[in-house]
Design a protein around this nucleic acid. Structure first.
Lengths: 182, 182
DNA sequence: GGCAACCTTCACGTTCGCGTCAAGGTTAAG
DNA sequence: CTTAACCTTGACGCGAACGTGAAGGTTGCC
């Protein structure tokens, strides 16, 4: 059942294979757990650069970067693995193919690069949307704070609170064309 | 089809209660489900303003705002309900008590307001931290993009890419351990 | 007072994102 | 060759965050 990948006849192209790490080292390096890394692989988010003779997972620097990105998307940005899968698409396959395409025609190289840039642009757009939502919430909370501070000022000035029982933002009832109300 | 939902149920008990909504209306208004709203209540994130004779949950405008905030924290900001509970603390109890404290001494009013402002400040700080993480990721991706574009430029200029096998970001200093926020 | 549409409280089922054994094979060191 | 430390693939478990009935009470309109 062993499934030899690549075998002894390595690509022989790259002169200096920097170093391939085993899963535990990768885990230590990325702050993830081996379990998570395997799970991400099962979810199709990445594939190890290689497997050893005995089918140990072996990761290269590219994998490390990818895993850090995934970890960030998970923990910092709060995306689900499904969403991350969407964002990464088949970048994993391409990324690996791209290395081979490097030996290919310049046209292929150019295509691969522009594709990669497009993908990153889409990732950036998704991240920016997320940040905008966050900014909206922050603005909302800030408005709430301002309102409270106004009430406090009124109170300090001995004014009557006027029975406005609302701590909050003025209802954005859709009446006219404003921005994209969600 | 079922025309109408709750008619103008004016109990006329208190003086001009703005309007109390039942759970399904609230759900429609906030984009949440009744189940989620009840779950949030079970998790201590909020309590309905009142209950009807037959123990129907009845929500006021303040509850609506709170639920929208919770929804935003969940869906937009990606916080867990536990984290949201931390951020909201006992604001729910206070918020409701505050209305009663309004009839209390001015000192109590001032204290309640400054407390509320402090809580919002902490919420803002938490949200800002989250946004900073996101910004960092965005900067990271942008750097990656810039690097790819450089490679593309090299290629267009007929230069050899020098076989740099990395798609990515200049390695950040690796050393710090990962913080575990869950 | 009848009835449909809503609500209530259980209670079980589900998906996600892993943690955690279990039962072996693999690697590097000695 | 032995051995400890790592790895492999299952498979089961778990907490979070709900979905989905089931069985019955409430509201409100006619």
């Amino acid at each position: 059942m062993g499934h030899d990948a690549a075998g002894p006849a390595a690509p022989a192209a790259t002169v200096s294979e920097p170093r391939l790490l085993r899963i535990q080292e990768v885990a230590a390096e990325t702050g993830l757990t081996p379990r998570s890394i395997r799970y991400y692989e099962a979810m199709g988010l990445l594939a190890p650069a290689a497997r050893s003779e005995g089918s140990y997972r072996l990761y290269d620097a590219d994998d490390l970067e990818r895993l850090r990105f995934i970890g960030g998307l998970r923990n910092d940005a709060g995306f689900s693995l499904a969403e991350i899968g969407q964002m990464l698409e088949d970048e994993q396959a391409r990324s690996r193919n791209r290395v081979q395409f490097r030996a290919g025609s310049p046209a292929a190289q150019r295509a691969a690069l522009t594709d990669a840039i497009d993908r990153i642009d889409r990732q950036l757009a998704t991240l920016a949307r997320k940040r905008d939502r966050l900014d909206a919430m922050i603005a909302d909370a800030a408005a709430r704070r301002g309102h409270l501070r106004d009430h406090l000022a009124d109170l300090e000035a001995g004014r009557s609170p006027d029975h406005a029982p609302h701590t909050g933002v003025p209802r954005p009832i859709r009446k006219a064309s404003q921005e994209t109300a969600r």
